[in-house]
Nucleic acid binder design. Structure first.
Lengths: 218, 218
DNA sequence: AGTGAAGCGGAAAGAAGGTTCCGGTTCACA
DNA sequence: TGTGAACCGGAACCTTCTTTCCGCTTCACT
């Protein structure tokens, strides 16, 4: 259901039973990752899927492959949201809308949160996150700044960080907590007359990477 | 240096060599916890102190005892800062100053961050954090709200969360990142005419606990 | 100096995961 | 239906970290 029966990327197609198991693993992993994050044990996935650990390892020897297969579509969804946000008539509103919608998705799925974060740190996931999201975020920011509604000293990196932080502070059990923080943040983001500039800070991307490492623990 | 040679709380005084080791463990643990957080292995502490693991376990069979012994004074420092902040003439400025000073301390010490967070979740550390900090924070908030400078719908819990979040996003290598976020937050905290109220949210303390669990991982 | 209680180091045991491997099974194809 | 390649399960094996245990050392006191 998650992806059609298909070859192991290049080689000949999987045998019927193997293909069946592959789907089963993907479906089960989606649940397990959403609940326990990307570091959930393969044995938990195997147990819930009712198959052996060996089977999971054989199909996805690298955890990254499993993650990639699982979250590609969900990242695409968020990229699409960013695209739609850029088309809204009011630029600031577009930005706010993007943050809200992106958070709604991240908050429901611990795995997705971590993929969003790790797509910035780890090279293996970069493709599915940052490089597709980055330019659109830049566009959203530039547009709202040109309209004079977003403070001029905000960077796309600032927003990325706030996004990660807000999603890291919310769980499925507390579905509304982030809304409160987002409302607060949006107040802070607005350009106002006579504003002091934000304190400068070390290279933004480097900062972002440190943040991500930190939020993921270790 | 961290605490004078003294009895194991009730019993007769430690032997000279044991007391010496106790101090050595505390000093070393302070470093190790600051670098690796509260979950750092006892063997790492022992290795750096140049003593056996057994010695560390004998002196501090419960990790909580070690943590308590280490961070009591540092929490007291933060409580003192909150007290000073409450005496500043401008209430909003006092709040801002408290957040800044508290963060300066938390940011430098990963262990302290975790103690601040866990003092809210785990009963064993509660005493050294929340119960002493809570009333003072409440006072800071109430005072700034009475002065009409802090938005009236902010709760002490909001601030506690923001404090945890900002400290969790900063490392010693990125000493300035949190300043940028704090500046942004302060903009959002100010009361302004015609403000929309913040979205309401599940019981604040429960939310706080979820957040803390989350930031600490697991 | 002699004595025994307190303390020490670090090897060994235990606990919790993650990963590999191999005997047996299932499938695809002739 | 027969055959070999692909695949399966899960026990065994690593790894990493925590905790205990015990023979030897050091200290305090006489």
């Amino acid at each position: 259901m998650i992806s059609e029966t298909r070859a192991t990327d290049e080689c000949r197609p999987l045998r019927a039973d193997a293909a069946r198991n592959r789907e089963l693993i993907l479906e089960t992993a989606a649940q397990v990752f959403a609940e326990h994050g990307l570091e959930a044990g393969y044995d938990e996935i195997a147990r819930r899927a009712g198959i052996g650990v060996g089977t999971v390892y054989r199909r996805f020897p690298q955890r990254a492959e499993l993650v990639q297969a699982l979250f590609e579509s969900r990242i695409a969804e968020i990229v699409a949201i960013a695209g739609q946000a850029a088309e809204r008539p009011d630029a600031f509103d577009g930005l706010a809308w993007f943050l809200e919608k992106a958070l709604e998705r991240q908050v429901a799925d611990r795995g997705l949160k971590e993929v969003m974060a790790s797509s910035i740190v780890h090279d293996q996931h970069r493709v599915i996150g940052r490089e597709r999201l980055g330019p659109i975020l830049e566009n959203l920011v530039a547009r709202a700044q040109a309209a004079g509604t977003l403070r001029p000293d905000i960077t796309p990196t600032d927003l990325g960080m706030q996004l990660m932080v807000m999603s890291s502070m919310t769980t499925a059990e507390q579905p509304d907590l982030w809304r409160r923080c987002l409302a607060l943040l949006l107040e802070g983001l607005r350009q106002r007359p006579g504003q002091e500039p934000l304190p400068l800070c070390a290279p933004a991307d480097e900062a972002m990477q440190h943040l991500m490492c930190n939020l993921q623990g270790r």
